[in-house]
Amino acid sequence: MEYAYYPGCSLDSTGIEFNLSTKAVAKAFGIQLVEIPDWNCCGASAAHSTSHWLGLSLPARNLAIAEAAGLDVAIPCAACYARSKRAEVEVCKSEETRAKIEEIIGRPYKGESKARALLDIFHRDLGVYTDKNALKKPLAGLKVVTYYGCLMVRPVDTGFDDPEDPISLDEIMTALGAEVVPWGFKTECCGASLTACRPEVGFPMTEKILDAAKKSGADCIVTACPMCMANLDMRQDQIGKAKNVHYDLPVYYFTELLGVALNMNNKELGIPRHFVPAEALVNKIGQAKTTEGGEA
């Protein structure tokens, strides 16, 4: 299986663990990820907030490059996926839009190269959750809440999963042996860049999600979005301190936990780089299993 790979800006820096774990896990599963040469930023929320055509054209350029190579694009980041998918859908919907975008980017793009969420690829194309044999270290005893964020599954015409109660991440986690704890915040917005440019608005949004996750009794949060990760992981300590709460909720990319289940090394997956210490919890899984095995 071969995909064009669009890591996006976050995965080069603040979301580097997502990049590391994605590449490691993909390799283990035999997925070839060919990074789009000289890819550009999708524009995130800033471009489409400023200009309709800029918001569509920036991701279209990346798709056009992949189309020339005859590949669909695997996109880990939820925001990059949402913007890219939007461009693809608009191009397919209207000849006029396609012509305008092609003119702006100076490349042909027919909408044949599809934007695919990495989560969707792992869930649908590979059927990892059925392949028990590959799991060297099932995540037995790990209680997780799955957090898809808002952009991964919305709006409906661009999504691959149910926008109100998505299950792809749940099914992957269940297949890995983890216990998926039900909660009501799977697709609530974390505040995205509002935590950066309007903290008094953005912080309470992230706080609600952390509170709900804590209340659910889960050990950790699993996500598929680097923006969500930044808010939930990096800002967790600050939010907790302001109200004298110690959340102690590690946040993982689903690819990291895939790697853990394949018994990959934490460092290789980027787990030591988290703000909220995340190694102890996954290490415990292994130990618990070993202990159990030893007694048996």
Binding site: A46, L194, C197
Partner: peptide, 27 residues
């Protein structure tokens, strides 16, 4: 909302000149 607009402007300026985001620059 001046701050949100400024954030967007800076973001766009960086992307325009570098093609990608440069987070220390943004902050």
């Amino acid at each position: 909302e001046k701050n949100i607009d400024k954030f967007n402007n800076i973001y766009n300026t960086i992307v325009k000149s570098l093609g990608r985001m440069y987070e220390p620059g943004l902050i």
